[in-house]
Design a protein around this nucleic acid. Structure first.
Length: 272
DNA sequence: CAACCGCCCTGGGAGC
DNA sequence: TGCTCCCAGGGCGGTT
């Protein structure tokens, strides 16, 4: 389940592999993932990729016609750049043949991913970025910002942190880990966050995300690097997926709760 | 309009 | 062994 550190890991491998390449041919093996794939056949052949960047959980490859190839990896998206000799895997839906003889391949078992050409504005952003809040590793995500932004919000703090309009790229894994490290209950109403709690959330989100990027992301089941290897951060997870186990800090049993259909794990003793 | 809910999709694990 | 059921969950569209 790629969140920010996983997508950043993908970007670091993908940018050098795609930048400057011309897309010669498109081959499709499914009609759609989250969006129809057929338009790619008209939009991509002949286009050169000028730059590749990440925002939130998206990667955008800027094309030479003012449009961008927008990618989102959903739950199970895996991309590779490799030889056309490698046999197609069961859930590979798109091959983009590049001018250096290699093939960009998009695999996604659950087809929750997006691969779509969209227009870019003057900042090279596709329309979906306009509603986004700050990146968690940039200055805009400050304790002051989080405190101000949470005033009057009736939502619980965990879905609030997972809202891309508040801060981008934080999903279930890193929201869970951040709130545990910040000693804030995921069930707490966002409007009731104190300034010190906001500071702890910002500091710990940064620390956890930075460390996960350093470890090449978290592989639970599906996430793979562009070269097929696994991320190593899973060993650092303190409580994600460990409901019923003892809290690593106080030893009381970790509890599970449902928030918006997502499982939340927390320590009722440490997190208030 | 904020908040919430259901849907998209398939593999893997639990339970019988 | 093999069947069924449930869960994983980001983003988005629909509803309250």
């Amino acid at each position: 389940m790629p969140e920010l550190p996983e997508v950043e890991t993908i970007l670091r491998a993908l940018a050098p592999a795609l930048t400057g390449r011309r897309i010669e041919r498109v081959e499709l093996f499914s009609p759609k993932m989250r969006t129809p794939l057929a338009p790619l056949r008209e939009e991509l052949p002949g286009r050169t990729i000028l730059a590749v960047r990440r925002r939130a959980r998206y990667i955008v490859a800027k094309l030479d016609n003012g449009h961008g190839l927008v990618m989102h990896f959903g739950m199970t998206g895996v991309v590779r750049v490799e030889s056309p000799e490698v046999p197609r895997r069961k859930h590979e839906h798109v091959f983009l043949y590049l001018d250096n003889g290699l093939v960009f391949r998009f695999e996604c078992a659950r087809r929750f991913s997006v691969l779509e050409v969209q227009p870019l504005n003057a900042n090279d952003d596709p329309p979906v970025f306009l509603s986004f809040g700050p990146e968690p590793l940039e200055d805009g995500f400050s304790p002051d910002y989080l405190y101000t932004r949470s005033r009057g919000v009736k939502q619980a703090v965990k879905p609030f942190l997972m809202d891309n309009g508040v801060v981008t790229g934080i999903g279930n894994i890193y929201a869970t880990e951040t709130l545990f490290a910040a000693r804030v209950s995921p069930l707490k109403q966002a409007s009731r966050l104190t300034r010190p709690a906001c500071r702890r959330i910002v500091e710990n989100a940064r620390r956890v995300l930075q460390e996960a990027i350093r470890q090449g992301g978290t592989t639970i089941a599906d996430f793979r690097h562009v070269d097929g290897t696994e991320g190593q951060f899973a060993v650092n997870l303190q409580i994600y997926g460990k409901a019923g186990c003892p809290c690593p800090v106080c030893g009381n049993l970790l509890k599970a709760a449902k928030q918006g259909g997502r499982t939340t794990v927390y320590c009722p003793h440490c997190q208030r």
